[in-house]
């Protein structure tokens, strides 16, 4: 009888070890550092012109009572293997905390009707996602999302761009942390 009564308790005890704990959100400090890596772009154009490779650098640093994300993308598309056509683009956005610890508002991109657009960021588990909305002078939107997930060795990037009319582009990348 004792053995029968013990079984449910043993089962519960076992479940406590097996059951995954509720995922906690990482602190923004966990993202601070310098990351380098590369990514592969995938879009409708990629079907015709081949998948494009790109080098990715990201630096996330504290700034004021928030943080700043700066990233550089070096894109090699077209040209010849000996002399590829190279484009380099650097962007940065600063964020401040809001009343919600998982949400951040941009301090320097606050108007979607401007060239810089409007940006916000959200933190969920190990992923920091930065969104940027730009509305063109014709009223067309361009919504970009950069989801950066930290891991033991570095960072995974998933970039998605949605444009008015359905055109979209996605980039998946892997980066290694090279400096704190």
């Amino acid at each position: 009888m004792t053995r029968i009564l013990l079984k449910p308790w043993l089962l519960l005890l076992g479940m406590a070890f097996i059951w995954p704990a509720a995922a906690k959100d990482a602190s923004i400090k966990a993202f601070y550092g310098v990351y380098q890596g590369s990514g592969i772009a995938n879009s409708k154009d990629s079907l015709y012109f081949g998948i494009t490779m790109r080098d990715l650098d990201v630096t996330i640093r504290p700034a004021g009572d928030g943080f700043r994300v700066e990233w550089t993308t070096v894109l090699r598309q077209g040209g010849t293997p000996e002399n590829p056509r190279v484009r380099r683009k650097t962007s940065s956005i600063s964020f401040r905390p809001t009343d919600n610890p998982r949400r951040f508002a941009s301090t320097d991109r606050t108007d979607p009707l401007s060239e810089q657009g409007l940006s916000w960021a959200r933190l969920k588990e190990n992923t920091l996602t930065v969104h940027v909305l730009v509305i063109s002078p014709e009223g067309k939107y361009n919504l970009q999302s950069y989801a950066r997930t930290i891991s033991g060795t570095g960072m995974d990037l998933y970039f998605q761009r949605i444009k008015d009319g359905g055109e979209s582009r996605a980039v998946r990348g892997k980066l290694v942390k090279v400096a704190k």
Binding site: T98, R103, P112, L113, L118, W120, L133, E138, G139, K140
Partner: peptide, 13 residues
């Protein structure tokens, strides 16, 4: 956009 009402705009084309 980060509010209950959100951000609205309109275009004419």
């Amino acid at each position: 956009p980060i509010s209950d009402l959100g951000y609205g705009w309109a275009t004419l084309e």
